[in-house]
């Protein structure tokens, strides 16, 4: 198990390294520089600015300089928000994005798994039916339609919750978290339902029932582990979806998170900021994929040696 974790971490590190390199060079290949757009500045001033940010150096040297900073935890200056470093910008947004993401994944997993289990255990019952309908809605109505509609109904018409922003404590979190979690609730409940039904049909469940240990213990000790393996496996990719979703949610609900900066930074060629956010999101994604693999290996001994 320890060697499995080490191996997984090691390959994750390589993926991260490849991610950094690729993003850096792709960014530099993009036509147009950060200071060449819509601004009439004299060539001297432009040269001065570029020199100040080392944009006049050869690309490979810029890359080494960037890596040097990275090792010391310095993501460089933002080119657009002149007085801020990328660390400042990410640092100010990260707590909000993390809170949002944490609650969304928690709600998605808890709600999705319990609804899916209820559906599998009482097939074609009312909960099963409602979950199915809810699941279809979660898949058919994207969050950028659902979000605005929820704002319109719950905030503007009923006045129950704040429309946007992060000034009302937990109340400003309710809609963003629920909407962000919704597509995953839909998917996880479907996945849990079908894999639990399948798992309950496995021959070793019959062995367990033959032991006379009662239906709940059969479920808890024998059926659930196998049923949740695909769900755990999905949580890795779900994180990727959540990152995409959080960019939308932060835009729709005007939350001061990291995602809000990203689109802006990309459109304005703010290299260091785009790099920083890519690294942050990519790192998260890689970390979650590793955690997913480790959890699965912990749950399924057959995966530990592969």
């Amino acid at each position: 198990m320890i060697s499995f974790v080490a191996k997984r971490l090691w390959s994750g590190l390589w993926t991260l390294a490849a991610l950094i390199t690729l993003t850096f060079f792709v960014m530099r290949l993009v036509p147009g520089g950060p200071f060449s757009k819509n601004r009439k500045i004299s060539p001297e001033v432009q040269a001065n600015i570029e020199a100040a940010f080392h944009l006049d150096e050869p690309v490979w040297r810029q890359f080494l300089r960037y890596l040097g900073g990275l090792v010391q935890g310095d993501l460089g200056p933002s080119l657009r928000f002149r007085d801020y470093s990328v660390n400042d910008l990410i640092g100010s947004g990260l707590p909000y994005s993390l809170t949002l993401g944490f609650w969304a994944i928690l709600v998605a997993a808890a709600l999705g798994i319990s609804l899916g289990m209820a559906g599998a255990l009482r097939r074609n019952g009312p909960v099963d039916w409602a979950t199915g309908a809810f699941g279809v809605m979660g898949i058919a109505v994207p969050i950028f339609i659902l979000g605005p509609l929820a704002q319109l109904y719950f905030s503007l018409h009923l006045g129950l919750l704040p429309v946007s922003g992060w000034n009302d404590g937990i109340r400003s979190l309710i809609l963003p978290v629920l909407i962000l979690a919704l597509p995953n609730v839909a998917y996880i409940s479907r996945l849990t339902r079908s894999s639990l039904i399948e798992s309950l049909r496995e021959p070793h469940i019959r062995t367990a029932r033959a032991k006379g240990i009662g239906p709940w213990r059969v479920l808890r000790a024998h059926a659930l582990n196998g049923a949740l393996l695909p769900v755990v496996a999905y949580l890795g990719p779900a994180t990727a979806g959540l990152i995409t979703g959080s960019i939308l949610i932060e835009t729709i609900f005007a939350l001061p998170g990291v995602g809000r900066h990203f689109v802006d930074a990309a459109l304005n060629r703010d290299y260091p900021l785009v790099m920083g956010i890519t690294l942050l999101y990519g790192g998260f994604l890689i970390l979650f994929n590793i955690l997913t693999d480790i959890t699965r290996a912990w749950m399924d001994p057959r995966l530990r040696h592969g």
């Binding site: 070793h204 019959r206 033959a210 032991k211 006379g212 009662g214 582990n225 196998g226 399924d300 057959r302």
Partner: peptide, 28 residues
């Protein structure tokens, strides 16, 4: 009743299944 049957199963009556490859829980 299922509950009464559980008092017998595994204790007074036991069963051996056909395929030992699938009849054991792979996760335990």
């Amino acid at each position: 009743a299922p509950r009464a049957l559980d008092l017998l199963r595994g204790k007074r009556i036991a069963m051996i299944f056909q395929d030992p490859m699938t009849a054991l829980n792979p996760y335990q």
